[in-house]
Amino acid sequence: MAEILAAGEALERALALLQGGDIVAIPTETVYGLAGDATNGIGVARIFEAKGRPRFNPLIAHVAGMDMAERIAVFDPLSRRLAQAFWPGPLTLVLPQRPGNGIHPLVTAGLDTIALRMPRGFGGGLIAKLGRPLAAPSANSSGRISATTAQAVAADLGARIKLVVDGGATPVGLESTIVKAEGEKLRLLRPGGIAAEEIEAAVGMGLLRGDAAGVEAPGMLASHYAPDAAVRLNAKTVGEGEALLAFGGQRAEGWRHAAAFRNLSASGDLREAASNLFAYMQELDRSGARTIAVETIPFDGLGEAINDRLSRAAAPRDNTQPTT
């Protein structure tokens, strides 16, 4: 089983594993990431192997500063404004790759673009110490619920990795928002830990949605973030044996008879709901209920990202093909 070390004690151990081409689960402000040296093909391959992730699905490369980012990708003025406004933080930018950037092709899944993010905290310090970017998708089995605690990582991947760095519960609780500049416009590829409205306010324009050309970034496959239980959205009633994932103060009919119950935010706070989403889904899944009924959650602010994750969790699952 993986060793679990507190973030304050884990830097040198994590660094040694990464330098040796191994992988490490690390905390970020969004969710826990499964990190490997993005320039090391063996390390990157181990990420895909540990997760059971399809190799056509690209990874995000994480950087420690703009100097590192500029060596990897070509920034247009609009993307540079976003980096200045939101980095370090839960924003990923999809950018053209700079030739000869040293990133292993597995990271980008053969695309001529690369997804870049600059994390806060332990991850940023580890990257700076390593001196190379880290590829770090969420630290969970492919297609399953993302981990927001070290214990959740260990329960899922503990037999496949050597180290989990424990930084406590992740404060944001959702993966990063992913955007891509298209000329003078911006397209939202994945809603996440920064609300679309915040990005629109920073650049003074609306974000385009939909019509993305295939899988351009992580988290774009239809089925994703899935528990073992089925997921039923916009529930007005709770059926026999169902667990209930609630939101706000108004309850679905029959909620007192739910097999298990969690409220993302009794006060209707979407930021609190986002931080609780994956942990509460895991708890309800462990209850043994065959279905998780989910009350309606508004789409404004972080509600867009929450609903995105829930809709992918509820999507039909093709068990013959791996998911992200």
Rank of each mutant, 00 (worst) to 15 (best):
V153F: 09
G8F: 06
N307Y: 12
I47F: 07
S311C: 14
P90H: 06
R190T: 06
P88H: 04
A6P: 14
A109T: 00
L15H: 00
R251H: 15
K51M: 09
G102V: 12
A128W: 07
E29L: 07
G193A: 00
M68C: 01
S275W: 08
T170V: 01
V231Q: 12
L18C: 05
A2V: 02
R309T: 05
I127R: 00
G254D: 03
T149H: 00
L244G: 05
R117D: 06
A152L: 04
L15W: 05
S265K: 08
K236D: 15
G65L: 13
R53I: 01
M1A: 14
A73Q: 00
A252M: 09
R71G: 14
A273Q: 05
A181S: 15
A152C: 03
A181W: 00
Q97Y: 00
E12K: 11
K185H: 15
A202G: 07
P96M: 14
L186M: 13
I47M: 09
H257G: 12
A305M: 05
A61G: 03
S176C: 12
R81S: 10
G110P: 04
G143V: 06
P90A: 11
D308F: 08
G33C: 02
W87T: 06
R120V: 15
N40K: 04
L163N: 13
T92V: 03
G167I: 08
I60D: 09
A155V: 07
P119W: 11
T39Q: 13
D67G: 11
N234R: 07
G168V: 14
I72H: 02
G219K: 05
S265A: 13
L34Y: 01
L270M: 07
L310E: 13
R286A: 15
T148V: 10
K162I: 01
A195Q: 06
R46H: 02
D22S: 05
A115I: 11
P133N: 09
G268V: 07
S176Q: 14
